[in-house]
Protein backbone atom coordinates (compact mmCIF):
# COMPACT_ATOMS: atom_id res chain seq x y z
CA UNK A 1 0.00 0.00 0.00
CA UNK A 2 1.22 3.48 -0.85
CA UNK A 3 1.00 6.32 1.61
CA UNK A 4 -1.76 7.96 -0.40
CA UNK A 5 -3.93 4.85 -0.54
CA UNK A 6 -3.41 4.35 3.18
CA UNK A 7 -4.35 7.96 3.88
CA UNK A 8 -7.44 7.78 1.70
CA UNK A 9 -8.66 4.46 3.06
CA UNK A 10 -7.99 5.79 6.56
CA UNK A 11 -10.06 8.88 5.83
CA UNK A 12 -12.85 6.80 4.30
CA UNK A 13 -13.01 4.61 7.39
CA UNK A 14 -12.52 7.38 9.91
CA UNK A 15 -15.14 9.67 8.37
CA UNK A 16 -17.47 6.73 7.58
CA UNK A 17 -17.59 7.77 3.94
CA UNK A 18 -19.73 5.47 1.83
CA UNK A 19 -20.57 5.56 -1.87
CA UNK A 20 -23.82 7.42 -2.48
CA UNK A 21 -26.72 5.07 -3.19
CA UNK A 22 -27.30 4.14 -6.81
CA UNK A 23 -30.96 5.16 -6.70
CA UNK A 24 -29.94 8.78 -6.11
CA UNK A 25 -28.02 8.87 -9.37
CA UNK A 26 -30.79 7.04 -11.16
CA UNK A 27 -33.36 9.46 -9.78
CA UNK A 28 -31.29 12.46 -10.95
CA UNK A 29 -30.99 10.87 -14.37
CA UNK A 30 -34.73 10.17 -14.58
CA UNK A 31 -35.52 13.74 -13.50
CA UNK A 32 -33.46 15.14 -16.37
CA UNK A 33 -34.97 12.71 -18.86
CA UNK A 34 -38.45 13.52 -17.56
CA UNK A 35 -37.88 17.28 -17.82
CA UNK A 36 -36.43 16.75 -21.28
CA UNK A 37 -39.60 15.00 -22.40
CA UNK A 38 -41.81 17.62 -20.78
CA UNK A 39 -39.92 20.44 -22.51
CA UNK A 40 -40.19 18.72 -25.90
CA UNK A 41 -43.90 18.20 -25.30
CA UNK A 42 -44.39 21.85 -24.33
CA UNK A 43 -42.39 22.92 -27.39
CA UNK A 44 -44.65 20.70 -29.52
CA UNK A 45 -47.77 22.23 -28.02
CA UNK A 46 -46.36 25.70 -28.74
CA UNK A 47 -45.73 24.70 -32.32
CA UNK A 48 -49.25 23.34 -32.68
CA UNK A 49 -50.58 26.76 -31.61
CA UNK A 50 -48.36 28.49 -34.19
CA UNK A 51 -49.84 26.35 -36.94
CA UNK A 52 -53.29 27.08 -35.56
CA UNK A 53 -52.99 30.87 -35.37
CA UNK A 54 -51.02 31.69 -38.49
CA UNK A 55 -53.38 32.00 -41.39
CA UNK A 56 -51.10 32.18 -44.39
CA UNK A 57 -54.02 33.12 -46.61
CA UNK A 58 -53.77 36.52 -44.90
CA UNK A 59 -50.54 37.10 -46.81
CA UNK A 60 -52.37 38.22 -49.95
CA UNK A 61 -54.48 40.58 -47.84
CA UNK A 62 -51.29 42.25 -46.69
CA UNK A 63 -50.34 42.86 -50.30
CA UNK A 64 -53.72 44.52 -50.70
CA UNK A 65 -53.07 46.96 -47.84
CA UNK A 66 -49.35 47.34 -48.67
CA UNK A 67 -48.23 46.06 -45.30
CA UNK A 68 -45.50 43.70 -44.19
CA UNK A 69 -46.96 40.51 -42.79
CA UNK A 70 -43.90 39.45 -40.84
CA UNK A 71 -43.32 42.77 -39.05
CA UNK A 72 -46.97 43.46 -38.24
CA UNK A 73 -48.62 42.99 -34.88
CA UNK A 74 -50.57 40.17 -36.53
CA UNK A 75 -47.41 38.15 -36.05
CA UNK A 76 -47.04 39.17 -32.40
CA UNK A 77 -48.67 36.04 -31.04
CA UNK A 78 -46.99 33.66 -33.46
CA UNK A 79 -43.68 35.20 -32.41
CA UNK A 80 -44.68 34.70 -28.79
CA UNK A 81 -45.16 31.02 -29.54
CA UNK A 82 -41.94 30.89 -31.58
CA UNK A 83 -40.13 32.23 -28.52
CA UNK A 84 -41.90 29.61 -26.49
CA UNK A 85 -40.66 26.86 -28.84
CA UNK A 86 -37.13 28.27 -28.59
CA UNK A 87 -37.36 28.48 -24.80
CA UNK A 88 -38.44 24.87 -24.49
CA UNK A 89 -35.77 23.82 -26.99
CA UNK A 90 -33.21 25.51 -24.72
CA UNK A 91 -34.64 23.77 -21.66
CA UNK A 92 -34.53 20.48 -23.58
CA UNK A 93 -30.89 21.19 -24.48
CA UNK A 94 -30.05 21.90 -20.83
CA UNK A 95 -31.67 18.66 -19.71
CA UNK A 96 -30.13 16.63 -22.49
CA UNK A 97 -26.68 17.97 -21.57
CA UNK A 98 -27.23 16.67 -18.06
CA UNK A 99 -27.97 13.14 -19.16
CA UNK A 100 -25.10 10.67 -19.23
CA UNK A 101 -24.59 10.81 -22.98
CA UNK A 102 -25.55 14.45 -23.43
CA UNK A 103 -22.01 15.67 -24.03
CA UNK A 104 -21.50 13.40 -27.01
CA UNK A 105 -23.60 15.57 -29.31
CA UNK A 106 -23.02 19.11 -30.47
CA UNK A 107 -25.31 21.84 -29.23
CA UNK A 108 -26.62 22.64 -32.72
CA UNK A 109 -27.69 19.02 -33.20
CA UNK A 110 -29.42 18.84 -29.84
CA UNK A 111 -31.28 22.14 -30.29
CA UNK A 112 -32.23 21.48 -33.91
CA UNK A 113 -33.21 17.91 -33.01
CA UNK A 114 -35.44 19.20 -30.25
CA UNK A 115 -37.03 21.76 -32.59
CA UNK A 116 -37.51 19.14 -35.30
CA UNK A 117 -39.18 16.86 -32.76
CA UNK A 118 -41.41 19.75 -31.62
CA UNK A 119 -42.39 20.44 -35.24
CA UNK A 120 -43.18 16.80 -35.90
CA UNK A 121 -45.04 16.17 -32.68
CA UNK A 122 -46.60 19.65 -32.84
CA UNK A 123 -48.05 18.89 -36.26
CA UNK A 124 -49.63 15.74 -34.87
CA UNK A 125 -50.99 17.65 -31.88
CA UNK A 126 -52.35 20.33 -34.22
CA UNK A 127 -54.12 17.66 -36.23
CA UNK A 128 -55.62 16.41 -32.97
CA UNK A 129 -56.93 19.92 -32.23
CA UNK A 130 -54.55 20.71 -29.39
CA UNK A 131 -53.41 24.00 -30.94
CA UNK A 132 -56.97 25.28 -30.88
CA UNK A 133 -57.51 24.07 -27.31
CA UNK A 134 -54.41 25.81 -25.99
CA UNK A 135 -55.12 29.01 -27.90
CA UNK A 136 -58.61 29.08 -26.38
CA UNK A 137 -57.28 28.30 -22.94
CA UNK A 138 -54.81 31.16 -23.18
CA UNK A 139 -57.49 33.54 -24.46
CA UNK A 140 -59.73 32.67 -21.56
CA UNK A 141 -57.12 32.90 -18.85
CA UNK A 142 -54.71 35.57 -20.04
CA UNK A 143 -56.35 38.91 -20.83
CA UNK A 144 -53.26 40.33 -22.53
CA UNK A 145 -53.17 37.36 -24.86
CA UNK A 146 -56.80 37.74 -25.79
CA UNK A 147 -56.35 41.49 -26.25
CA UNK A 148 -53.34 40.96 -28.57
CA UNK A 149 -55.33 38.51 -30.60
CA UNK A 150 -58.23 40.92 -31.07
CA UNK A 151 -55.91 43.81 -31.88
CA UNK A 152 -54.06 41.78 -34.48
CA UNK A 153 -57.35 40.78 -36.07
CA UNK A 154 -58.62 44.36 -36.10
CA UNK A 155 -55.35 45.75 -37.42
CA UNK A 156 -55.48 43.58 -40.47
CA UNK A 157 -59.17 43.19 -41.13
CA UNK A 158 -60.92 46.30 -39.80
CA UNK A 159 -60.19 48.29 -42.94
CA UNK A 160 -63.52 48.79 -44.67
CA UNK A 161 -62.06 51.53 -46.88
CA UNK A 162 -59.48 49.04 -48.09
CA UNK A 163 -62.15 46.44 -48.70
CA UNK A 164 -61.52 44.35 -45.59
CA UNK A 165 -63.93 43.69 -42.77
CA UNK A 166 -64.25 41.34 -39.80
CA UNK A 167 -67.10 40.74 -37.43
CA UNK A 168 -69.47 38.34 -35.78
CA UNK A 169 -72.50 37.15 -37.76
CA UNK A 170 -75.63 38.33 -36.01
CA UNK A 171 -78.15 37.56 -38.72
CA UNK A 172 -78.28 35.49 -41.91
CA UNK A 173 -80.90 36.22 -44.56
CA UNK A 174 -80.67 33.52 -47.29
CA UNK A 175 -83.63 34.94 -49.20
CA UNK A 176 -81.90 38.26 -49.70
CA UNK A 177 -78.36 36.79 -49.96
CA UNK A 178 -77.29 39.09 -47.19
CA UNK A 179 -75.92 38.81 -43.70
CA UNK A 180 -75.48 41.22 -40.83
CA UNK A 181 -72.28 41.34 -38.82
CA UNK A 182 -71.25 43.25 -35.75
CA UNK A 183 -67.66 44.53 -35.84
CA UNK A 184 -65.29 44.96 -32.89
CA UNK A 185 -66.57 48.48 -32.24
CA UNK A 186 -70.15 47.27 -32.01
CA UNK A 187 -71.07 48.69 -35.42
CA UNK A 188 -73.52 46.60 -37.50
CA UNK A 189 -72.78 46.04 -41.19
CA UNK A 190 -75.14 44.83 -43.86
CA UNK A 191 -73.20 42.50 -46.12
CA UNK A 192 -74.31 41.73 -49.64
CA UNK A 193 -73.03 38.26 -50.49
CA UNK A 194 -74.54 37.75 -53.91
CA UNK A 195 -71.14 37.53 -55.59
CA UNK A 196 -69.57 35.23 -53.04
CA UNK A 197 -68.44 31.69 -53.79
CA UNK A 198 -68.32 30.19 -50.31
CA UNK A 199 -65.80 27.66 -49.22
CA UNK A 200 -67.97 24.80 -47.88
CA UNK A 201 -66.64 25.28 -44.35
CA UNK A 202 -67.07 29.04 -44.33
CA UNK A 203 -70.80 29.39 -44.99
CA UNK A 204 -71.71 32.11 -42.51
CA UNK A 205 -73.64 30.98 -39.48
CA UNK A 206 -74.97 33.09 -36.67
CA UNK A 207 -72.40 33.53 -33.91
CA UNK A 208 -69.42 32.82 -36.15
CA UNK A 209 -66.69 35.36 -36.78
CA UNK A 210 -65.97 35.90 -40.45
CA UNK A 211 -63.43 37.82 -42.51
CA UNK A 212 -64.77 39.57 -45.59
CA UNK A 213 -62.98 40.84 -48.68
CA UNK A 214 -65.03 43.22 -50.84
CA UNK A 215 -65.96 46.83 -51.22
CA UNK A 216 -67.51 49.38 -48.91
CA UNK A 217 -70.68 50.70 -50.50
CA UNK A 218 -72.14 52.89 -47.80
CA UNK A 219 -71.63 53.81 -44.15
CA UNK A 220 -72.98 50.47 -42.99
CA UNK A 221 -73.12 48.42 -46.17
CA UNK A 222 -70.49 46.24 -47.73
CA UNK A 223 -70.45 44.14 -50.92
CA UNK A 224 -68.55 40.94 -50.31
CA UNK A 225 -66.51 39.18 -52.98
CA UNK A 226 -65.00 36.63 -50.62
CA UNK A 227 -65.88 35.39 -47.14
CA UNK A 228 -63.38 33.48 -45.03
CA UNK A 229 -63.86 31.73 -41.76
CA UNK A 230 -61.69 32.96 -38.88
CA UNK A 231 -59.41 30.08 -37.94
CA UNK A 232 -58.49 31.20 -34.45
CA UNK A 233 -61.59 33.07 -33.33
CA UNK A 234 -63.28 30.16 -31.61
CA UNK A 235 -62.69 31.65 -28.18
CA UNK A 236 -64.81 34.70 -29.07
CA UNK A 237 -67.40 32.53 -30.76
CA UNK A 238 -67.58 30.24 -27.74
CA UNK A 239 -67.77 33.15 -25.35
CA UNK A 240 -70.76 34.37 -27.27
CA UNK A 241 -72.30 30.91 -27.29
CA UNK A 242 -71.84 30.64 -23.52
CA UNK A 243 -73.36 34.07 -23.02
CA UNK A 244 -76.30 33.03 -25.15
CA UNK A 245 -76.85 29.84 -23.18
CA UNK A 246 -76.68 31.76 -19.92
CA UNK A 247 -79.10 34.30 -21.24
CA UNK A 248 -81.47 31.54 -22.37
CA UNK A 249 -81.24 30.02 -18.96
CA UNK A 250 -82.20 33.27 -17.35
CA UNK A 251 -85.13 33.66 -19.74
CA UNK A 252 -83.83 36.91 -21.11
CA UNK A 253 -84.57 38.32 -24.51
CA UNK A 254 -81.80 37.05 -26.77
CA UNK A 255 -82.54 39.38 -29.59
CA UNK A 256 -80.22 42.04 -28.24
CA UNK A 257 -78.56 42.70 -31.55
CA UNK A 258 -81.39 44.64 -33.01
CA UNK A 259 -81.78 42.54 -36.14
CA UNK A 260 -85.53 42.56 -35.88
CA UNK A 261 -86.10 38.88 -35.20
Amino acid sequence: MTKLSEDILGKIKHDHIVPAARWRFLLKSYVFWGLLMVSVLLGSLSFSVIVHIIDFRDLNVFNQVHGNFFTSTVMLLPYFWFLSVMLFASVAYYNWKHTRLGYRFKRRWIVSGSIALSVLLGSVLYALGMGNQIDMLMSKNMPFYDKSKREARSELWMRPDNGLLVGKVVNVDPADDSITIKDETGQDWQIDEKNVQHEPQSVPKKGKIIKIVGKKEGDHTFAASEIRKCGNCQSDEEADSTDTKNAEKNGKDLDHDGDGE
Binding site: L4, D7, I8, I17, P19, A20, A21, R22, F25
Partner: peptide, 22 residues
Protein backbone atom coordinates in the same frame (compact mmCIF):
# COMPACT_ATOMS: atom_id res chain seq x y z
CA UNK B 1 -1.65 18.75 -6.44
CA UNK B 2 -1.66 16.36 -3.47
CA UNK B 3 -4.75 17.99 -2.03
CA UNK B 4 -6.50 17.83 -5.38
CA UNK B 5 -5.51 14.22 -5.88
CA UNK B 6 -6.89 13.22 -2.50
CA UNK B 7 -10.07 15.10 -3.31
CA UNK B 8 -10.31 13.27 -6.65
CA UNK B 9 -10.08 9.84 -5.02
CA UNK B 10 -12.52 10.67 -2.23
CA UNK B 11 -14.97 12.16 -4.71
CA UNK B 12 -14.62 9.16 -7.03
CA UNK B 13 -15.29 6.83 -4.09
CA UNK B 14 -18.42 8.74 -3.06
CA UNK B 15 -19.70 8.59 -6.64
CA UNK B 16 -18.67 5.04 -7.35
CA UNK B 17 -22.29 4.02 -7.90
CA UNK B 18 -22.51 6.64 -10.63
CA UNK B 19 -19.68 5.06 -12.60
CA UNK B 20 -20.99 4.34 -16.05
CA UNK B 21 -19.86 0.92 -17.21
CA UNK B 22 -20.03 2.17 -20.81
Amino acid sequence: VEDTLQDVFISAYKNLNDFDQD
